[in-house]
Design a binder for these strands. Structure first.
Length: 271
DNA sequence: ATGGCTCCATACTGGAGA
């Protein structure tokens, strides 16, 4: 089972790229961020024609998250993080997909930092961490993925010194991310590829992609119950080089099939 | 410190992204 996350930077402007990516990479589940479209402008028909059922939480111009599945309709379990009923930003949606809980995150960017936008980012991060802890305590199989707008370590940035004044690399941002992972989550990309240069974002300026001047800030975190099933992780890097690409590339994990339960014999292989 | 590029809105320009 392949679960992917992709910050599309405008679902309608990006639709041809997204459909091509779904067709070529064929993820079972796709979490999208930065739809930048209200609910009524989500291209549900085109996505259904591509073989995916979807749930989404849109917003005019900014933010917006969606979960797509080609293995049956995602069953929505939450939209929006708990802890602030006045927060109207569309930045979190969650679904059950065949027994796996998948949370799709668009963590606020927070620039300029310091300032009120950065304060909002840190407050949002704090709410995420509080909620993520309840997921860990519940003990089930969970994937939390998306654009965290957090660059975990210096290894995850080309020329990290250029980013020290940016909200994605601020010490408080990295500390919040480290605190989240320390709850028991496995950062899939980094755990399976320790020491490697892995980027998921290259800005549109300065020919950044061609120079591989990127950042790693799109992440897939798996809960302890899923960690033994994690068998692969990667970045669909070539998508970033396609015509009219997002500034992010899709990122994915591959999970072994969930067993039907501790006492149930393994199902016989289907042809 | 700024700009480079690209998206969206309702547009001939500006805000946000990171």
């Amino acid at each position: 089972m392949r679960i992917a996350t992709y910050n599309v930077n405008g679902i309608n402007g990006r639709l041809p790229v997204v459909l091509r990516w779904l067709r070529e990479m064929n993820p079972d589940v796709a979490c999208l961020q930065e739809l930048r479209a209200p609910d009524e402008k989500f291209p549900a028909d085109a996505i259904r024609d591509a073989g995916y059922e979807a749930i989404w939480h849109g917003q005019k111009s900014w933010n917006g998250v969606a979960i797509l599945s080609r293995r049956g309709r995602p069953v929505e379990t939450r939209r929006g993080l708990p802890g602030d009923p006045d927060d109207l930003h569309s930045c979190y949606i969650e679904a059950d997909l065949g027994g796996v809980t998948v949370g799709c995150i668009y963590l606020p960017n927070g620039n300029p930092a310091p300032g009120p936008k950065f304060d909002y980012k840190l407050a949002w991060f704090k709410r995420l961490n509080a909620y993520a802890r309840t997921l860990i305590k519940r003990g089930g199989p969970v994937v939390l993925c998306g654009d965290f707008n957090a660059v975990p370590t210096e290894l995850d940035a080309y020329k990290p010194e250029r980013w020290v004044h940016d909200a994605v690399f601020f010490p408080q941002t990295r500390a919040a991310y480290a605190k989240l992972v320390a709850q028991g989550w496995t950062d899939a990309l980094r755990t399976l590829h320790p020491g490697e240069t892995i980027y998921t974002y290259w800005d549109y300026f300065r020919n950044a992609f061609a120079r591989n001047a990127g950042l790693r800030m799109d992440h897939l975190l798996v809960s302890p119950a899923l960690q033994p099933l994690l068998k692969g992780a990667g970045v669909d890097r070539e998508v970033r080089g396609w015509e009219k690409s997002s500034d992010h590339a899709p990122v994915w994990i591959e999970l072994k099939p969930l067993s039907g339960g501790p006492r149930r014999p393994r199902a016989r292989a289907r042809n």
